[in-house]
């Protein structure tokens, strides 16, 4: 599989990739997600986050690789692990952080919390935290796009666990039969909470199931942002041209537990170390420098920007007011 090897062929001239500015931007976005999640985890450990968190650490290449191929007016449908999807699509870090702190300035006015972040103005639907629940909704958004005929595409993220939900089957099938412009992005991180992939699938790859729906199924290295980008971009363009949905499976790994209460006692530390060697962020950094597309000076500057951005977001979020009690009763219905 050619798409798997892009980052490993350091210095090679890969085809089908965007301008170097965009490639550097992929690094920036992955780094932003990584540090956002690590620093949010610090806040959690300090008792400053009033909820659990499902962190995206380790999977950054998937959200960034997919979103790099989306237009501003394309939409993302997200999951209970949504921070990375939102940041990759361009939702303001401050809006997410304020939401995590339950502040009224949060992207959902403090009414959604970690598992429902999203900003419709940035092309991210508020995240759906029921596993598989977003799949038929993505088909519906795709139907609306098809009816409007504006070429809009929906990227629908989900984990391997979602592929065993009935909603997944119904959603993929209806998107397939109607050629809806949806890219179904499976982030196969090998565990549905604690349950390993091998216990719940008879097939080797989630994408193997695509043939049951008569749509293309592609499996890529989800730790390689360029491989994800290239495969996603092809699927996005196919959808945009009326070619219907694609099932894109990205093999990835979450470096931390399922949620903050998960000590990861169901998997070996050796396995974790093997996957950490594949960490997409240092690999992308090396590739950018090795290809001459960037240098340590520029990338260090980006790293500093990421820290400053989080500092500012935290300052904003902490200074923000909590929702007034009257907010309890608003937004149940639209008037």
């Amino acid at each position: 599989m050619e798409a798997k090897t892009i980052l490993l062929n350091r210095g090679a001239e890969p085809t089908g990739l965007p301008e170097s500015d965009s490639l550097v931007d992929m690094y920036r976005r992955m780094k932003l997600i990584r540090r956002f999640e690590e620093r949010v985890n610090d806040l959690y450990l300090q008792g400053r986050i009033p909820s659990t968190l499902h962190l995206y650490i380790g999977q950054e290449a998937v959200a960034v690789g997919v979103c790099a191929g989306l237009r501003e007016d394309d939409y993302v449908l997200s999951t209970h692990r949504p921070h990375g999807h939102s940041l990759a699509k361009g939702v303001e870090p401050r809006a997410i952080l304020a939401e995590l702190l339950g502040k009224v300035t949060g992207c959902c006015r403090g009414k959604g919390g970690s598992m429902h972040v999203g900003d419709i103005t940035k092309g991210v639907y508020p995240a759906v935290a029921i596993v598989g629940g977003n799949i038929p909704i993505a088909a519906g958004a795709g139907l609306a796009a098809k009816m409007r005929g504006d070429g809009q595409v929906e990227a629908c993220f989900f984990g391997d666990g979602a592929a065993n939900e009935g909603a997944w089957h119904e959603g993929l099938n209806i998107a397939a039969i109607w050629d809806l412009p949806v890219v179904f992005v499976c982030e196969n991180n090998l565990y549905a909470a604690s349950t390993p992939f091998s216990l719940t699938f008879k097939v080797e790859n989630v994408a193997d199931r695509a043939c049951a729906y008569g749509i293309p199924g592609v499996t890529v290295d989800g730790m390689d942002v360029l491989a994800v980008y290239r495969a996603a971009n092809e699927a996005i363009e196919r959808a945009r041209q009326g070619g219907g949905p694609t099932l894109l499976e990205c093999k990835t790994y979450r470096f931390c537990g399922h949620s903050r209460s998960d000590p990861r006692t169901y998997r070996g530390r050796e396995e974790e170390q093997e996957w950490q060697k594949l960490d997409a962020i240092p690999r992308m950094r090396q590739w950018l420098v090795g290809s001459g597309l960037s240098d340590d000076g520029q990338l260090d500057e980006i790293d500093d920007w990421v820290e400053r951005t989080f500092d500012e977001a935290l300052e904003f979020a902490e200074a923000s007011p909590e929702p007034d009690v009257s907010e309890l009763f608003t937004d149940v219905f639209k008037e």
């Binding site: 799949i135 909704i137 519906g140 909603a167 959603g171």
Partner: peptide
């Protein structure tokens, strides 16, 4: 599920 989900998404 798809009827409801598609209606919601649309």
């Amino acid at each position: 599920i798809a009827i409801a989900g598609v209606a919601i998404g649309a």
